[in-house]
Amino acid sequence: MTNSILHSACTIRENKITLNGEAIFESDLTKTFSEFAKEAYHYFDLNYPKFFKMDNLSKLGMLSIEGILLTQGVRNIINSDKCALILSNHSSSIESDKIHAKSISNLVNFFPSPSVFVYTLPNIVLGEIAIKNKMQGENLFLLSEKFEAKQLFISTETLFETSSTNTAICGWIEFDGNKWESLVYITQKIEDPNQKNGNFMPHTIQEINKLYNA
């Protein structure tokens, strides 16, 4: 196991974006996810029209990354092939899958939408994030029954030990209709064994679970 730290974390739940424990954007709970996402898009001043063509899973992933990138100094460390992206969820791309399935269920009116079909894989969210933020490192999308800190921890530590990866943006991007939530956090490998962790929490399964349950 490497010496690594948890750098920062961003959660999005119940129409609220929280960065490192502090609410940075909040929308009325009566708003749908689409309405919330549009408001958050303007809050982040994204100026990225492709956002509106994405499925909800990718929108949630994009907003989560925008949130964590507000942490001072983080933008400089992700534009590197040493920064990995490791995300996970339970419902895969179920929402886009259902829309696509419906579009091909009627053989008379058979008009599947290419722009829906391209989102019928959960790892597309990784590509959208990587393209927007010019990330060129390793990427991985994991499926699990529920949030699994251990799975994320092992995957990240394996990359730290076996590749040039020294930073990873990890987390949980779950979207299934009205049930949605996200947590992304940044973990960094400490290269110098004598370097202290400073004010940062150690990268451990227990601390990752604390971030999710906060």
Binding site: K53, F111, S113, S115, V118
Partner: peptide, 14 residues
């Protein structure tokens, strides 16, 4: 983009 091009083809047909 290229996906939009495919959507336009579907639009013309539908």
């Amino acid at each position: 983009d290229s996906i939009d091009a495919l959507e336009l083809i579907v639009l013309l047909e539908r």
